[in-house]
Design a protein around this nucleic acid. Structure first.
Length: 120
DNA sequence: CATCTGACGACCG
DNA sequence: GCGGTCGCCAGAT
């Protein structure tokens, strides 16, 4: 029994910490958690995001504030963002106003916890 | 085992 | 600003 917990656990942990009205990019997640493979890895993690755990998946967006989902999910994400006060212009989140910056050390500590959970 | 498929992002023309 | 290429890698088929 090695991998009961998803490899993406650290990603979800970090995403859960994104405050209302704030967003992070896939690249940010990758850098904060030192994900191998970079932003794409963050993207894969989010694609496999489990529902029912209160993970604010809609607060994760592409570089430059772009929504990268395909319809109809893109519309939902946009709607959710707007509903919590996040401002968009031309379909892009105003990162200047809403980009959240996780404390890297904290993020890594969470990642370590998750990995221990995976290993143990 | 081979191959395909992505919720990426940097780079280039 | 827009489309194409490339590196990257876990899961699915």
């Amino acid at each position: 029994m090695t991998k009961q917990v998803s490899l993406w656990e650290p990603v979800y942990r970090l995403v859960k910490r994104i405050p209302r009205g704030k967003v992070v990019t896939y690249g940010q997640l990758a850098r904060a958690l030192r994900l191998p493979g970079g932003a794409r890895t963050a993207g894969r993690a989010m694609a496999a995001c489990p529902s029912g755990r209160g993970i604010p998946w809609h607060r994760v967006i592409g570089a430059g504030g772009r929504i990268l989902l395909r319809e109809p999910h893109a519309s939902l994400q946009r709607r959710l963002l707007e509903s919590e006060g996040t401002q968009l212009i031309e379909g892009r989140v105003r990162l200047k106003l809403h980009q959240w910056q996780p404390a890297k050390k904290r993020a890594l500590r969470h990642a370590v916890r998750a990995q221990r959970q995976t290993a143990g």
